[in-house]
Protein backbone atom coordinates (compact mmCIF):
# COMPACT_ATOMS: atom_id res chain seq x y z
CA UNK A 1 0.00 0.00 0.00
CA UNK A 2 1.07 3.60 0.46
CA UNK A 3 4.72 4.32 0.48
CA UNK A 4 6.07 6.57 3.20
CA UNK A 5 7.51 9.91 2.10
CA UNK A 6 9.23 12.32 4.47
CA UNK A 7 9.28 15.94 3.39
CA UNK A 8 11.95 18.09 4.99
CA UNK A 9 11.11 21.71 4.15
CA UNK A 10 10.64 24.93 6.09
CA UNK A 11 8.47 26.98 3.74
CA UNK A 12 4.87 26.46 4.84
CA UNK A 13 3.16 27.00 1.50
CA UNK A 14 5.53 24.67 -0.29
CA UNK A 15 4.93 21.99 2.35
CA UNK A 16 1.22 22.47 1.74
CA UNK A 17 1.61 22.08 -2.02
CA UNK A 18 3.82 19.00 -1.97
CA UNK A 19 1.79 17.30 0.73
CA UNK A 20 -1.31 17.89 -1.38
CA UNK A 21 0.32 16.42 -4.49
CA UNK A 22 1.82 13.33 -2.91
CA UNK A 23 -1.16 12.53 -0.72
CA UNK A 24 -3.40 12.46 -3.73
CA UNK A 25 -1.18 9.78 -5.23
CA UNK A 26 -1.80 7.67 -2.19
CA UNK A 27 1.48 8.11 -0.40
CA UNK A 28 1.80 8.75 3.28
CA UNK A 29 3.44 12.16 3.71
CA UNK A 30 5.15 13.33 6.90
CA UNK A 31 6.83 16.69 7.20
CA UNK A 32 9.67 18.10 9.19
CA UNK A 33 10.86 21.70 9.18
CA UNK A 34 14.08 21.85 11.15
CA UNK A 35 17.44 20.95 9.67
CA UNK A 36 19.23 20.39 12.95
CA UNK A 37 17.54 17.14 13.91
CA UNK A 38 16.37 16.10 10.44
CA UNK A 39 18.82 13.17 10.20
CA UNK A 40 17.59 11.69 13.46
CA UNK A 41 13.99 12.08 12.42
CA UNK A 42 14.71 10.34 9.11
CA UNK A 43 16.55 7.49 10.84
CA UNK A 44 13.77 6.90 13.29
CA UNK A 45 10.86 7.25 10.86
CA UNK A 46 12.51 5.08 8.16
CA UNK A 47 10.71 6.59 5.14
CA UNK A 48 10.82 5.08 1.65
CA UNK A 49 11.81 8.44 0.23
CA UNK A 50 13.03 11.76 1.53
CA UNK A 51 12.20 15.02 -0.21
CA UNK A 52 14.89 17.38 1.07
CA UNK A 53 15.17 21.14 0.85
CA UNK A 54 18.64 22.66 0.81
CA UNK A 55 18.23 25.86 2.78
CA UNK A 56 16.95 24.70 6.09
CA UNK A 57 17.23 26.39 9.42
CA UNK A 58 19.82 24.71 11.62
CA UNK A 59 21.57 22.56 9.08
CA UNK A 60 21.92 22.61 5.30
CA UNK A 61 20.41 19.91 3.13
CA UNK A 62 23.85 18.99 1.86
CA UNK A 63 25.05 18.18 5.35
CA UNK A 64 21.98 16.11 6.06
CA UNK A 65 22.48 14.21 2.82
CA UNK A 66 26.09 13.49 3.66
CA UNK A 67 25.10 12.17 7.06
CA UNK A 68 22.51 9.91 5.49
CA UNK A 69 24.98 8.55 2.97
CA UNK A 70 27.55 8.00 5.65
CA UNK A 71 25.16 5.77 7.60
CA UNK A 72 24.78 2.22 6.25
CA UNK A 73 21.12 2.16 7.18
CA UNK A 74 20.31 5.14 5.04
CA UNK A 75 23.08 4.91 2.45
CA UNK A 76 20.68 3.70 -0.25
CA UNK A 77 17.69 5.76 0.82
CA UNK A 78 16.31 7.63 -2.21
CA UNK A 79 16.62 11.37 -1.69
CA UNK A 80 14.95 13.92 -3.91
CA UNK A 81 16.57 17.26 -3.34
CA UNK A 82 14.80 20.54 -3.98
CA UNK A 83 16.56 23.84 -3.97
CA UNK A 84 15.72 27.43 -4.70
CA UNK A 85 19.35 28.27 -5.32
CA UNK A 86 19.47 27.15 -8.90
CA UNK A 87 23.20 27.38 -9.40
CA UNK A 88 25.09 24.65 -11.17
CA UNK A 89 27.50 24.49 -8.31
CA UNK A 90 24.69 23.35 -6.02
CA UNK A 91 23.81 20.54 -8.39
CA UNK A 92 27.43 19.41 -8.44
CA UNK A 93 27.63 19.50 -4.68
CA UNK A 94 24.41 17.52 -4.39
CA UNK A 95 25.56 14.88 -6.84
CA UNK A 96 28.85 14.60 -5.07
CA UNK A 97 27.02 14.10 -1.82
CA UNK A 98 25.10 11.24 -3.41
CA UNK A 99 21.69 12.67 -4.18
CA UNK A 100 19.25 10.42 -6.04
CA UNK A 101 17.50 13.22 -7.87
CA UNK A 102 17.98 16.99 -7.89
CA UNK A 103 15.33 19.54 -8.82
CA UNK A 104 15.26 23.31 -8.70
CA UNK A 105 12.33 25.37 -7.49
CA UNK A 106 9.97 26.38 -8.91
CA UNK A 107 9.16 22.89 -10.13
CA UNK A 108 6.43 21.45 -12.26
CA UNK A 109 4.04 19.34 -10.21
CA UNK A 110 4.07 16.50 -12.73
CA UNK A 111 7.85 16.41 -12.73
CA UNK A 112 7.91 16.09 -8.98
CA UNK A 113 5.34 13.33 -9.10
CA UNK A 114 7.22 11.51 -11.86
CA UNK A 115 10.47 11.83 -9.94
CA UNK A 116 8.96 10.56 -6.71
CA UNK A 117 7.31 7.73 -8.55
CA UNK A 118 10.57 6.75 -10.26
CA UNK A 119 12.53 6.84 -7.07
CA UNK A 120 9.99 4.83 -5.13
CA UNK A 121 9.69 2.32 -7.94
CA UNK A 122 13.42 1.84 -8.46
CA UNK A 123 13.98 1.66 -4.77
CA UNK A 124 11.17 -0.83 -4.40
CA UNK A 125 12.60 -3.05 -7.15
CA UNK A 126 16.04 -3.06 -5.72
CA UNK A 127 15.03 -4.07 -2.28
Amino acid sequence: MGKHVLLVEDELNIIEAIRFLLSREGWQVDTHSDGADATDVIRSSKPDLVVLDVMLPGKSGFDILEELRGDAATADLPVLMLTARGQSRDREMAEKAGVSRFMTKPFSNTEVLTAVRDLLYVHGQRT
Partner: peptide, 28 residues
Amino acid sequence: DAFLSQISHELRTPMTSIRAFSEILRDT
Protein backbone atom coordinates in the same frame (compact mmCIF):
# COMPACT_ATOMS: atom_id res chain seq x y z
CA ASP B 1 27.81 34.87 -5.38
CA ALA B 2 26.16 34.70 -2.00
CA PHE B 3 23.99 37.68 -2.87
CA LEU B 4 22.89 36.19 -6.19
CA SER B 5 22.29 32.89 -4.50
CA GLN B 6 20.21 34.61 -1.85
CA ILE B 7 18.19 36.59 -4.36
CA SER B 8 17.62 33.47 -6.36
CA HIS B 9 16.39 31.73 -3.27
CA GLU B 10 14.20 34.59 -2.17
CA LEU B 11 12.60 34.92 -5.59
CA ARG B 12 12.22 31.23 -6.28
CA THR B 13 10.61 30.43 -2.99
CA PRO B 14 7.40 32.42 -3.52
CA MET B 15 7.44 31.45 -7.19
CA THR B 16 7.48 27.83 -6.19
CA SER B 17 4.32 28.16 -4.17
CA ILE B 18 2.66 30.21 -6.86
CA ARG B 19 3.46 27.72 -9.57
CA ALA B 20 2.63 24.67 -7.55
CA PHE B 21 -0.75 25.97 -6.43
CA SER B 22 -1.67 27.40 -9.77
CA GLU B 23 -0.96 23.99 -11.31
CA ILE B 24 -3.01 22.36 -8.60
CA LEU B 25 -5.88 24.70 -9.30
CA ARG B 26 -5.59 23.99 -12.99
CA ASP B 27 -5.04 20.25 -13.01
CA THR B 28 -6.96 18.96 -10.04
